[in-house]
Design a protein around this nucleic acid. Structure first.
Lengths: 192, 192
DNA sequence: ACCTGAACACCGTTCAAGT
DNA sequence: ACCTGAACACCGTTCAAGT
């Protein structure tokens, strides 16, 4: 009898995602959780993909994005915050990576990185550099979350390189590789 | 009346993938294409995921992997061959990236890169460097293929940064960033 | 070894109609 | 504005039984 609003649906979707995981976040399950038929959700969103995009954007809006520092430390901080955000929700990495690659949402990290790099003087390399950083962060987070859940399910003995504190170190090393590469290619660029 | 063998199934699956795309590569469709009930496929593979892993491995086995050159040019060549292979089949990038991240197959590029980097003297950084390269190549190829198909469907006007020769340049620049970063971080490593 | 037949337990989406 | 009821056109997987 209490009718649902669009933000209600997104909030409940995040709960279902975190408790059941992305494969169980179905229109039918989400409808049931809201006390409503699946078809009612199509009053709020034109498709499931649009719903997932709204969920991804909401997760990213909750993140404590950094605002200060020179471009290298701010870029690194942004990537660490992004990773932490993706890992903070069950299947968060896969969800956000999918939404981003379909071009339906999750644009915030890209825009933050491009403007950080542009303000840092990286210039015309900024969009390519930002995408390279995002490919690394999403890929690493998806791998880590997949192996984390495999280990939690007991299917595989903890691979220490993919789980726990070793994964954080590994993320930092990989991120260092990409940022160092941006610095080098930027310096090798003809001046403007 | 002619019964199917395991390689038959993989070969037909690649045909269906390339003609219909990954969403239409269903057990039911593939069975129909082989003149067989969907349940018959479970005699050859324990699950759809196992089938997809075999398909990904077959695609990767067909690639002309490079075998010579110093580690930087050989690494670059391996990444270019991988990208070309992924883009040579409809939805090839998404298929191989998914299989790889689930840990069920598609291990060949990782092994090639690790041994190339190790022989190049990159030492303990090799596994992390290889994964960073793969995150970039898979992420870039998935993006490119997604936008290519969106452009082909006419939904979006060709984004020149994501399509055509500009995409190749962009891939090369991003790859240059990662390889340069590996060189820097390797040089910054304490000697062993 | 390879396949059939039939079932189980689900999906996303549409659409006329209700309040 | 938000939802119901009912349908459409599908999924992956299991399992006893057939050849």
């Amino acid at each position: 009898m209490n009718r649902n609003t669009r933000p209600d649906v997104v909030t409940k979707a995040i709960e279902v995602l975190d408790e059941l995981g992305l494969p169980d976040l179905t229109m039918r399950r989400l409808g049931a959780e809201l006390g409503v038929r699946p078809s009612a959700l199509y009053h709020h969103f034109p498709s499931k993909q649009a719903l997932l995009a709204a969920v991804a954007d909401e997760l990213l809006d909750r993140a404590p994005w950094p605002a200060v520092g020179d471009w290298t430390t701010r870029t690194a901080a942004t990537c660490h915050v992004l990773r932490d955000t993706l890992l903070a929700y069950r299947d968060g990495a896969e969800l956000v990576a999918t939404v981003h690659s379909f071009g339906l949402g999750a644009r915030r990290p890209y825009e933050l990185l491009v403007s950080t790099l542009a303000e840092g003087g990286v210039g015309p390399l900024a969009p390519t550099a930002a995408r390279t950083l995002l490919h690394f962060v999403y890929g690493h987070a998806v791998d880590e979350q997949t192996h984390l859940q495999a280990a939690a399910a007991g299917a595989i003995g903890d691979d220490p390189l993919e789980t726990g504190p070793r994964a954080s170190e590994d993320f930092g090393v990989g991120l260092g590789i990409v940022i160092a590469g941006i610095q080098v290619m930027h310096a090798a660029q003809p001046a403007r």
